[in-house]
Amino acid sequence: MVLQRTVAPLDARRAHIELWQRELEHRDYAARTIALRLTALASFYSYCENENLISRSPMLRVRRPRVERRSPRTSLSRGQLHDLLAAARELGPHAHGILCLLAFNGLRISEATRLDVDALDYDGLFPILHITRKGGRPGVAVLARPTEAAIIACADGRSSGPLFLTRSGTRAGQRSTQRILDRCAHHLRGHRTRITPHVLRHTWTTLAIDAGVPHDQVQHDGGWADPRMLAYYTHNRDNALRSATHSVAAYVLSAS
């Protein structure tokens, strides 16, 4: 099915949008992709309506595909993450340093790549990084000792400039980090889809919960303002070892 004519955006009606939705379905677009595109359209027409460019949004009563309120991205297992970091170490300090920060602190890639060497500081005995969160909010990332060592190796005695560098000496970004992940992915145990920086954020969230870190602490350290986002990112909830039955049974049976 192919639409035979185009319509100017401000002249579109509900029927045009529903035909376009059917065409996307016919092309085997994922339900989540279609839902996101319709959401973007709804925002656009809402803006146009508020600015009196149209009298009524054509998105009214358009039924969007129902998708699970949970990211489809998978996370790595403990063993796979260990393999990934071991492979990154072989690529040099900057590759190892940025993956340590993403894996052990769950930072967004934008938060990690904008860091300068002077971001490293100490809160008493604890090494920290002063970071800029999503939306420009200031934040602090406490570093585990292995991450501290990796960060110091990246700084390499420098007092200014980007913390993470590419091989050409420029600031590392999302593309260069993705190239590191692509090279390291071949060393992982078990077949999986492409690993992205965001997959490491999912992995950090899942492993933190598995390790028994309280949800409010995971939310704080992950930089989420809305606690509901934690459920969106968390995977492995069907793991039998995490079932509440173990804690409840032990609590009840230990009563005197």
Results as ranks from 00 to 15, higher is better:
residue 58 P to E: 00
residue 121 D to F: 01
residue 148 E to S: 06
residue 161 G to E: 10
residue 119 A to S: 07
residue 82 H to S: 15
residue 172 A to T: 15
residue 99 L to W: 00
residue 151 I to G: 00
residue 137 R to V: 14
residue 88 A to E: 03
residue 137 R to K: 15
residue 56 R to S: 05
residue 143 L to P: 02
residue 82 H to I: 15
residue 153 A to F: 09
residue 166 T to P: 11
residue 161 G to V: 01
residue 97 G to W: 00
residue 134 K to H: 04
residue 74 T to P: 03
residue 129 L to M: 04
residue 130 H to R: 13
residue 130 H to S: 07
residue 56 R to W: 08
residue 159 S to L: 14
residue 169 G to H: 12
residue 154 C to N: 00
residue 147 T to H: 08
residue 114 R to N: 09
residue 166 T to D: 02
residue 127 P to W: 12
residue 145 R to F: 00
residue 92 G to M: 12
residue 144 A to N: 12
residue 85 L to N: 10
residue 141 A to S: 13
residue 129 L to T: 02
residue 137 R to D: 13
residue 158 R to Y: 09
residue 82 H to N: 14
residue 93 P to K: 04
residue 162 P to S: 14
residue 96 H to M: 06
residue 145 R to L: 03
residue 112 A to W: 05
residue 118 D to I: 03
residue 80 Q to I: 12
residue 80 Q to Y: 01
residue 125 L to S: 13
residue 134 K to T: 08
residue 160 S to P: 00
residue 127 P to D: 09
residue 77 S to D: 10
residue 167 R to Y: 11
residue 60 L to D: 07
residue 114 R to W: 07
residue 126 F to K: 10
residue 61 R to T: 14
residue 153 A to D: 10
residue 155 A to T: 13
residue 103 A to C: 03
residue 83 D to C: 06
residue 127 P to R: 14
residue 74 T to M: 02
residue 59 M to C: 12
residue 122 Y to S: 04
residue 89 R to Y: 08
residue 73 R to M: 11
residue 122 Y to D: 07
residue 57 S to L: 10
residue 135 G to T: 11
residue 66 R to Q: 08
residue 171 R to V: 06
residue 163 L to Y: 05
residue 160 S to R: 15
residue 145 R to Y: 04
residue 110 S to V: 14
residue 143 L to D: 02
residue 90 E to Y: 09
residue 96 H to D: 09
residue 57 S to V: 07
residue 61 R to I: 06
residue 91 L to Y: 02
residue 131 I to P: 01
residue 128 I to Y: 06
residue 67 V to N: 08
residue 90 E to C: 06
residue 83 D to L: 01
residue 98 I to Y: 00
residue 81 L to W: 05
residue 91 L to A: 01
residue 148 E to T: 15
residue 168 S to H: 07
residue 102 L to A: 05
residue 92 G to C: 09
residue 134 K to L: 06
residue 150 A to W: 11
residue 155 A to F: 01
residue 163 L to S: 00
residue 159 S to N: 05
residue 98 I to W: 02
residue 129 L to C: 10
residue 89 R to T: 14
residue 110 S to Y: 11
residue 126 F to L: 00
residue 162 P to F: 12
residue 75 S to Q: 06
residue 134 K to C: 06
residue 125 L to K: 14
